[in-house]
Each structure stands twice: as C-alpha cells, then as structure tokens.
Design a protein around this nucleic acid. Sequence first.
RNA 1: GGGGGUGUAGCUCAGUUGGUUAGAGCGCUGGCCUGUCACGCCAGAGGCCGCGGGUUCGAGUCCCGUCACUCCCGCCA
Length: 590
Amino acid sequence: MNEYRTHKCNELGLDNIDNSVKLSGWVHRKRDHGGLLFIDLRDNFGLTQLVFDPDSESFNDAEKIRNESVVMVKGKVIRRSEDAINKNLPTGEVEVYVKKLEILSEAEDLPIPVFGEPDYPEDLRLKYRFLDLRRETLHNNIILRSEIINFIREVMKENDFLEFQTPILTASSPEGARDFLIPSRIHKGKFYALPQAPQQFKQLLMASGFDRYFQIAPCFRDEDARADRSPGEFYQLDIEMSFVTQEDIFDTVEPILRKIFEKFSRDKKINKKFPKIPFHDSLSKYGTDKPDLRIPIEMKDVTEIFKGSGFKIFSDSIVNDNNVRVWGIPAKKGGSRAFCDKMNSWAIEQGQPGLGYIIYKDKKGVGPIAKNIGENRTSEIKNLFSLDDSDSVFFICGIPDNFLSFSASARKRIGTELKLINEDRYEFCWIVDYPMYELNKDTKKIDFSHNPFSMPKGGLESLESLNPLEVKAQQYDIVCNGIELSSGAIRNHRPDILVKAFEIAGYDLKEVEDKFGAMLDAFKYGTPPHGGIAPGIDRIVMLLADVDNLREVIAFPMNQQAQDLLMNAPSGVSEEQIKDLGIKIIKKKE
RNA sequence: GGGGGUGUAGCUCAGUUGGUUAGAGCGCUGGCCUGUCACGCCAGAGGCCGCGGGUUCGAGUCCCGUCACUCCCGCCA
C-alpha cells in the first residue's frame, strides 16, 4: 500500500499465506511466553496477531515495548495450526511471523488502559480523551456518528435539500436560552453572540427563494447540562422547507428519520406510522409531552368515580376545589403487595404524600381504597382500565399542573419495575397542537410557550377572537423512546400576524423591529409560507448507539460543569487581550 | 442557584460496634515460562482513607464545613 503498510489490520486471511507484508498500528496486547511472544496489533480497522520467537532479531525490542506504542512490522503471513485458530477474530486463521519491528512512537505508562476498556472515572477519560477514543466502544460510536451524518447528507440530497452554512458570529436574540457572547474588538462595548440555532438565517434563506434548506448545524446555548444535553454546544439536523403545510413536513421528515433509523438500528424495530398525539392528550395520558411509548401504560381521569365516595382524602379534595382531579395509572401484573408498597415508599421519597392503590385478586379489588369506595366503584375502575386478577392501579389526587411530572415518573417507574418496556423498539410519535401562549407563573403575564415565530392555528383571526391561552400553534415535536428529538413549526411569515402575536405577549412594534428587523423586513418583500424542524444529531446518534449519555457519542465533550478537561477550556486570557476588547473582569470576592 | 449520590493504592472495590501494622482483584516493576488470544506462575513497589476543623485516650469509621465528579430540579424561544 505504502511505506508504512501493505495491509490494514483487518485484512489478512488464508489468501495471504506466505505473503511478505508490512503492518502498522498500536500494540494492543502482549502475551509473553518467554520463548515465544504474541502481540495483537491494532489499527482503526481491526486486529492481527503477530508472533515473535527468539530467533527474530526484534524479539528483544518486542519484549520491552509497552502497550499502545505505535510500531511498524515486516513479516510473513503464516497459517495458524488448527487448535490455535481464534474464531472471534476476522484475521484469526492467520498470524504474522515478524522479521523486523520498528518503533514509530513509544508509549509511556498509560493513565487509562485501552485494552479491555475497564470502567474509568469520567474526568480521567475526558482528560485523556485521545486514549479513551482508542477504546473499542467509544471508537465505534464515533465511527457510527460519522456514518450517520454521512448518510443524512445523502438522504437530504435525495430529497432535494441544499446544504448551507450560516454565521457562527451573529447577534444576540432576546428570546430563548442564555447566549454565549463574544466581545467585539472593533466595536468596543458591543458583542456578537453564538447562534442558539440558525433559526432566523434559515427562514431568511426561504425568503431568498432556496426552497429547501438543511444544515448539520452547530448550536450554542449557555445552559446547564443533563445526561441528554451537552453544556454549551450541540448539533442539529436543521431543516426548513418552502410552500408547505404541517402535513407536508411530517410526510417529508418522517420517512427520512425512518430511513436513518432503519439503516443504523441493527435489530431494533421502528413503529410503522408515527402517531400524532395532541399536546393535551399526551399530558393526560402520559403526564409529559415527551412520552416513552414503549411503556404500554395510559393514565385516565377517574375523578367522577371518586366523587362522593367513601375515600374521604380524595372525595373531600374534589369537593373543596374544582380543579382537583384523580388520575389512575394501571399496572398490569403489578398486583402484589410487595410491589405496591415499594411504589408507595418510592412516592414518599419523591416528596409525595403517598401513592394509593387497588390490587385485584380473586375477581375483586383489595386494599384500603377498595374497601372505602365499595365494590361498584372498584369494579368500575377495573373495567375502565381493562384490569384482571394480579393487576393493580395507582391513584394520584391533586391539581394536574402540580402532579404532572410526578405522574410521568410514576408511569415510567411502574413500566421499568414491572419490565413492561419493550427494549427492542424505537417508538416515535409526533406531538401536535401546542398552545401558542402560556401564563407565566411568576409575573402572571402571557408568554410565548415555545417558538414565537410559529404560525398560530387559524391565523390572525384566532389571535383576534380567541383567549390567547386557547390559541394553538402550528408547532410540533418529534419524540422517540421518551427523548425529545426536535421541535418544529410552520412559521409565521405574515408581518401583520407576527406583530399581533408579539403584541399579545407584550412586545410593542418597536421592540419587534429592533430585535427581528431583518426577518420582519424580509416578510415585507415577498416570503413563501414555510416551516421546518431540527432534530438533534447527538440524540439521534445516542439512540442508535444505544447509550444513555451524550458524552458517549461526542468525540471531545465537555464535562457537566462546561469545562473541556483536555484543552483546558474555559481558561484565563492575558491582560493584553482583555484590554484590546475594552472589557473589564470583576474579581469575585472571597 | 438548589437537592440527591459518590469520594480508601494508578483503577474497581472491601474495610465489622470507634481499637494493633488499612486489604483483595486488575494495572505497574522485576523474574520464570515455545501456542497464547482476559495467557500462566513467583516476587515487589505503590496509601495525607478528597481537603479543613471538631468530638474522643483513640477516627477510614461519628459530627460540622468545604472541594471534586456525577445524576436531577431550576434553566433549555
């Protein structure tokens, strides 16, 4: 092949017997028998076993070399004897008898081992990320990521999307997350911001007549991290389309996502048609707008059944406050005292008063609640949830807004504990009909609940005639296995409707012109109806790599405190640099 | 900003009711070993028990504080 190798480390087989070959790679593992020495040589592609015996001139070098050193060997491919074949290795039928070994780069003692990839603390893995990245699992995840992105480009191109680049240094925008700011040297006292998403740019590209846009877009938000949220930066498959309705976007994006998942999912199945679940239905069935549909549990409102019943804790609350609801969470095969008590103590740990339940056995319901509400109501509940002997049902009572997130985690907990989750599936759904506005709990003012640039359902008319909290947006999310992949919307491309929409949220015309002048301007000179979506690339790869942490699919991630332990960012800078920018550091006092 | 978890050898972890010299496996170093592929066997080095303070005759162990990492809440149009 070249000066360093004739073959890669996954290539040699019986066809190459007696060939003289050259291989280069890392010393993965040594097995030294004194009179005979084996080295597994590793490169990006695979492993090949090297053999040395004391006759080889390089035997001494090979004995001394440390793991993870980079070497080049010259030798002859020989057939392994029948009992020495390693079936786990694609090259396991042969080995290379080494005549010459040259050390290209010697490794010191390793701070983290590559071979066997034992668990190591994450801060060490991040500090020595280049070693961590050599380890098989992470190495393969990053290769998978590359292949997925490559395939995405192919599929997008097939669907007539053009790929664009948009600015990284742009202007701060008032809505949304905290911006990363870059001080301007030329315009002292002014700042660029890193884009939270290329939202306005992609809409401007539609105004510029490009019809279909996509970008593997870096997005920057200065917010705190989660396991499924990197601090600082992440990538979106950013999509925008002209002359489309919400349905057109579903019809385009759903097959694209299915294609990507089918290609890379190995053995997991994808649901055939992504159900469209209205936001409010999702909340009342699953307690969240990112439901994990692998859990076959749907909650139901059972307030009417408890009203006037003998279970005073619930029936009194219902009478005292119109907004109080009782929800039931069915638990198939959860009808054991041990399980229900376990759930109850878990609920108490979560700061709840408890988690009441009915267990069904011998054709009837048992437990304190069943006793208090009587046989009729107990069997009404049984029928409502189609329950049977050895099933149970849990109850949550209160104001839904307050218990929503608890109900969602209870549902998830029940599903996990009873092993009801089907791990072999990707269950996608669309969440639709998001409310346009919501009431800010602190200020009691009306806020945009999601993207302020979404087109309200019913256009100007509904903004003018409906209670703002009733207005739905042409806004949607796509969710897979309980992970929100993306939000999207049909955009509000009409200046009159846009101004009205902002007016309702308390912005006057001048503010809108100030902050979104370019877009508002563009809309004045002929802009097609358009909309889009932006699925998170990191999360897609995370799902496909079947890991539960984003750092397992990002080559050089930051830790949870938003530090890059490898490059040592963020770091201090010189007085000179600070002065140049015309800014001052306020020292934190101890 | 708040809450939970963790912190003992390079790593993973054990360490009894507060009681002598803090252990094991992996890794590392040295030695032996011609068919291993998680090679094997023998020996050795390696510890501020995260850090600071307190209680006690005595603290890895109890108390207070603090730091680091991680998970979650807030936040993420």
